[in-house]
């Protein structure tokens, strides 16, 4: 079965096609440097269509879609999930949501050398989205030992200390809050290490093992309540 997966939870736009028969995943991605704007709107569908073209297939060649449901930037998540839901509905392709944190951790597990893995996404406003797995947990579908949460980095460090053990921290949040996490004893790979980037290929592998449900159930995992300030009326349409 061929799986299409993409993720727009972080600055990156990542799209991958994986043939479960064994060929390595084809991954197309855009990774803007820290501080620059994500290009999800401009690139998500463009990269997706390019991936199909490079494989020489049409939508009928896709057996399943996996979409990153975050947590991450709200707008980015909606761009990805809206596209995934619409593609799934328009082509009748089964859809499954993939936790972006689990995918980060699962990819890192192979490089972790037995340590526990903490996936951290920069949640802005001085907070981190994080989840942690001990042993080989993330890839196997096990429940996280540190459930997905939104926390200030100091509190996250405290939780790690409470759990004990060796931690490998990955993700753009691990880079952003490196000092705090390292002080808590976590190991953070170099800033430019690919382990910090969300891999859509890893999404494909996780989606392959998931059981697709109903399209309507695939929604972002925002992990945060919406900011409930009304828009300046001039900015609204109506």
């Amino acid at each position: 079965m061929r799986i299409l997966a993409f993720d727009t939870a972080t600055r990156s736009t990542a799209v991958a096609l994986l043939d479960t028969d064994g060929a390595p995943a084809l991954e197309l991605r855009d990774d803007p440097p820290p501080g620059s704007r994500p290009r999800h709107t401009a690139l998500l569908m463009a990269l997706t269509v390019r991936a199909l073209d490079e494989h020489g297939i049409d939508w009928d060649g896709i057996g399943r879609i996996g979409v990153g449901i975050g947590p991450g930037t709200f707008t980015g998540l909606r761009i990805g999930v809206a596209a995934a839901r619409a593609l799934s509905a328009a082509r009748g392709i089964p859809l499954t949501g993939v936790s972006t944190l689990r995918s980060l951790a699962s990819a890192a597990e192979r490089a972790a050398g037995g340590s526990s893995v903490l996936a951290v996404i920069d949640a802005r406003r001085g907070e981190a989205f994080a989840a942690g797995w001990t042993a080989v947990g993330a890839g196997s579908g096990a429940a996280p030992s540190l459930a997905a949460c939104a926390l200030p980095p100091g509190e996250l460090a405290g939780r790690l200390a409470g759990l004990g053990g060796d931690w490998l921290a990955v993700g753009d949040g691990a880079v952003a809050f490196r000092e705090t996490l390292e002080r808590a004893g976590a190991r953070v790979p170099a800033d430019d290490d690919p382990l910090h980037l969300v891999s859509a290929g890893e999404h494909c592998r996780l989606a392959a093992r998931a059981t697709p449900g109903r399209i309507e159930e695939v929604l972002p995992d925002y992990l945060r309540a919406p900011d409930a300030r009304p828009a300046a009326a001039a900015a609204t349409a109506g």
């Binding site: 569908m45 839901r85 328009a90």
Partner: peptide, 19 residues
């Protein structure tokens, strides 16, 4: 309109059209 709101419609429309 509201950018975040418009993006949901545009992303959906692009995907339906591309599909």
């Amino acid at each position: 309109g509201l950018v975040a709101a418009l993006l949901v419609g545009l992303s959906t429309a692009k995907a339906v059209a591309a599909a």
